[in-house]
């Protein structure tokens, strides 16, 4: 992974716009998303490190991201065993639904 990254901000409002963005990003292996927000004094056009903001930083690009509240979360489901007879290849949507059903009730 490189030490310095280029930055792009994309505003989305709601799960449908967020889904559109994520679908678009599926085709681009050079990008990922983070929850942080770029500090005001950082030049967005300059490659920067992926580090949290620090008051004692030497340069803004060395610690550019603020830890802010966000309106999205990602739950990472890793190798969840499916019920016997269920196949993630054959029953993809049902497998996802199974995982959702195991999450806390809010989801």
């Amino acid at each position: 992974m490189p030490a310095y990254f280029s930055y792009e901000y994309r505003a989305v409002d709601g799960i449908e716009e967020f889904a559109s963005l994520l679908t678009e990003l599926e085709q681009d292996r050079s990008r990922f998303i983070i929850r942080g927000q770029l500090a005001d004094d950082v030049d967005a056009e300059t490659p920067m490190r992926r580090r949290l903001y620090r008051n004692d930083r030497s340069e803004p690009i060395e610690s550019p991201f603020l830890d802010v509240s966000t309106t999205w979360v990602m739950i990472d489901i890793d190798k969840l065993a499916l019920p016997r007879g269920m196949s993630v290849r054959e029953d993809t949507l049902a497998s996802v639904e199974y995982a959702i059903g195991i999450l806390p009730a809010e989801f």
């Binding site: 799960i15 802010v68 509240s69 309106t71 979360v73 739950i75 890793d78 196949s87 993630v88």
Partner: peptide, 18 residues
Amino acid sequence: DGHVSAHLYYWLDKPIAN
């Protein structure tokens, strides 16, 4: 194919801190 690994993204009704 007996396990599922996935990223589930949700929109929240209000911003929440990490």
